[in-house]
């Protein structure tokens, strides 16, 4: 049963990265767009993302619930040693979620709009940045449970070049996903062209920050290259990722939106495979080769069993409904009264 739970955990992380990521990315694109076009982006975004916005963020809740029910030790140690980045990410989530709703539902349009927009855009950047930091810190071997000082235990556990560069990389990925998504949702060719340019520049940024990640990994003694290229699965998935990236560049102008989206999704999936496969089932790597593993540190058998059942029953309800929601609003324009 624990494998069922792990599969759900991994899938929920992936879906949060893809769907939540595209959502964050839309804010990032707004942040890096000329003032003229900021509003257009924001209108396109609330039109297309509005109906699925709440659902996109549920994946994070699922991840957390799986962690604390199924892998309580892992949950407890992440939230102890990565308290500060988690806190900043939470503040980002609060700021972003509320600003998104407020700017849409404020009955009076005045100077407050500018404040909501600013908050929304900056928190769209900060939240995935810290998500990246948290993910990187979990595996970078910098958490030291024996650390004595405050800084060693609670700051340097997450503040290093490797985590910062992964944070930046996550931001670029989100921006890229959003651009790819928005290309398919535009109403004028001019707007479409704009997002194509955005997608390309986000892509270049992602490649550059990806290179940065490798440099930082070397600097911080994280054996990233070994994880990615030291095993056939890693190599194969990187190859697929690069292949789909090239196809996206070719198809981006005229290809069908669904194909481009699938390719982008495939690319991110493969990246996640490459980064998680090698150290699976170890999920937290502490300093001095200590670790927490999904298999060795899972919670009580009975708890895992009921969690797996709850997840399976849940997905019977959720997946068709979610699919129908996304499908419906692809075909119909959302309409509020």
């Amino acid at each position: 049963m624990v494998y069922v739970v792990i599969a759900y955990l991994w899938t929920a992380i992936l879906l949060y990265l893809l769907l939540g990521g595209a959502d964050f990315g839309a804010g990032i694109i707004e942040l890096f767009t000329s003032d003229n076009n900021k509003n257009k982006t924001s209108v396109t975004m609330s039109r297309t993302l509005g109906p699925i916005w709440e659902a996109n963020h549920m994946w994070l809740i699922i991840v957390i619930v799986i962690l604390f029910t199924g892998f309580p030790e892992i949950y407890a140690s992440i939230s102890t040693y990565l308290h500060i980045p988690l806190l900043i990410m939470l503040i980002g989530i609060i700021a972003r979620g509320t600003a998104f709703a407020f700017r849409h539902y404020d009955a009076v349009e005045d100077f407050m709009q500018a404040i909501y927009n600013k908050i929304f855009r900056y928190s769209s950047f900060i939240t995935p940045f810290f998500l990246g930091i948290i993910a990187a810190s979990a595996v970078s071997g910098t958490i030291n449970p024996d650390a004595k000082g405050f800084a060693d235990a609670y700051i340097f556990s997450w503040l290093h070049f490797f985590s910062l560069s992964v944070g930046l990389f996550t931001v670029c990925i989100c921006g890229y996903l959003a651009a790819i998504f928005l290309i398919g949702e535009t109403e004028t060719p001019e707007e479409r062209r704009r997002y194509i340019v955005k997608a390309r520049s986000m892509n270049v940024a992602a490649v550059i920050s990806g290179a940065l990640v490798f440099l930082a990994a070397a600097n911080d003694h994280v054996p990233l290259a070994k994880w990615m290229f030291g095993n056939p699965v890693g190599i194969a998935s990187i190859a697929v990722a690069i292949g789909s990236l090239i196809l996206q560049w070719i198809l981006i102008r005229h290809g069908q939106k669904i194909i481009i989206r699938l390719l982008a999704g495939l690319q991110i999936t493969m990246l996640l495979v490459a980064t998680t496969f090698f150290h699976y089932p170890k999920i937290i790597l502490f300093s001095e080769d200590r670790y927490l593993s999904l298999i060795e540190q899972h919670g009580d058998e009975k708890a895992i069993e009921s969690l797996a059942l709850a997840l399976m029953i849940g997905s019977v309800f959720i997946l068709p409904a979610l699919f129908y929601l996304i499908y419906s609003f692809q075909k119909k324009q959302p309409s509020e009264i």
Binding site: A55, V65, T69, I318, L322
Partner: peptide, 30 residues
């Protein structure tokens, strides 16, 4: 966590359904 996680995991499902239904309801007029 493992002992009282079950209501939270079922709650996750309920929230998800809620969020999906809300999407239909708020944006599906007409």
């Amino acid at each position: 966590g493992p002992i009282f996680g079950l209501p939270f995991s079922l709650e996750g499902t309920a929230f998800f359904i809620e969020a999906i239904a809300l999407g239909f309801y708020l944006y599906g007029w007409g």
